[in-house]
Design a protein around this nucleic acid. Structure first.
Lengths: 164, 164
DNA sequence: GCGACATTGACAATATTGTTGTCAATTAGC
DNA sequence: GCTAATTGACAACAATATTGTCAATGTCGC
């Protein structure tokens, strides 16, 4: 064995089985994360898709429905329904959009922000327990590896078009 | 900075943001993997759930419907519908179960096996391209990290019961 | 401005994936 | 053998997300 200083591109045949395992593990982790999230927030009546919308608004600030849809790569009609569900609950508001009469700006209300922060706090408990079990360097390597995986996969592939 | 020799359990507060990023990346990778898989196998008419059933049968060999359901933690009725869809396509067969008259053993046919292997070959191309871009040591670290993540999450949490 | 074209919200229909519920046949445990 | 649980068949439903359509609005070239 020579300790190859290069990012061993020769050994790709040997790495392929591990790459395969990586993909399987990603799928397994995702399923369990979703199940854990559903359990964690069951009492709040917030499903995974509502949570995703809240998260987007929390991070992006106010935005129009089509913008959120594009950010998440889903149909604008789908986001519209989610926002329509969130509005009567008082978690988001629609503010007149100075730059567009028909497309109001959607933003979290104080109530919506509190809700999301409650969810984040619950999740933080789980994440902290997880972080304790992880090695820092290995975790960093995992982040780099998954970033490459995400990068090497196309962001979309549904007919390759952007809209209807 | 002290170069801590221990698997730094002290720095969990510092690792939590990375653990958070890990979870987000897992979600992102999963979404893209599903989209890429759908595109890759679009012409075969095999959806992600059918693929999962084929994979289970490929790995576990012949099994009854309820067994497959338990292996995948989904309702037996769901697997029943998938198997019922696969049977007329000739991808699986139902063989009389010596140990159970009502519950036949389901197995891949030669055609089903060929189909799954075709899918695996297509995927192998993508996986090989990915493997080339990954560093072996980093990949190994990612596998260990994700294994801990999966382990620390409960396998199920749907009312905590096993069946109806 | 004005005319063509794209975007947007509202509404509807549909697809997919998965669940729960029920019933009769069968199997397993005592 | 009697009772429990399991199983397949069938149905109803729920959640998530898609596509299609229409009229109102907005954008851009000219």
């Amino acid at each position: 064995m020579k300790p190859s200083p290069l990012p061993d591109s020769r050994a790709s045949a040997a790495k392929a089985p591990d790459a395969d395992r990586l993909i399987k593990l990603v799928r397994l982790c995702f399923q369990r994360l979703r199940a854990a999230g559903d359990t964690l927030h069951a009492d709040l009546g917030i499903s995974a898709s509502l949570r995703a919308a809240l998260e987007t608004l929390y991070e992006l600030g106010e935005d129009t429905v089509p913008e959120i849809a594009r950010a998440k790569s889903v149909s604008r009609q789908h986001i519209q329904k989610i926002v329509d569900a969130l509005l009567p609950l008082g978690h988001v508001t629609a503010r007149a959009n100075p730059g567009h009469r028909r497309s109001p700006l959607i933003a979290l209300t104080a109530k919506g922000r509190r809700l999301f922060e409650t969810m984040r706090q619950r999740e933080a408990g789980v994440v902290a327990a997880l972080a304790k079990r992880l090695d820092g360097a290995e975790l960093a390597a995992a982040l780099r590896t998954l970033a490459i995986l995400a990068e090497s996969l196309p962001p979309r592939s549904k007919g390759e078009s952007d809209d209807e």
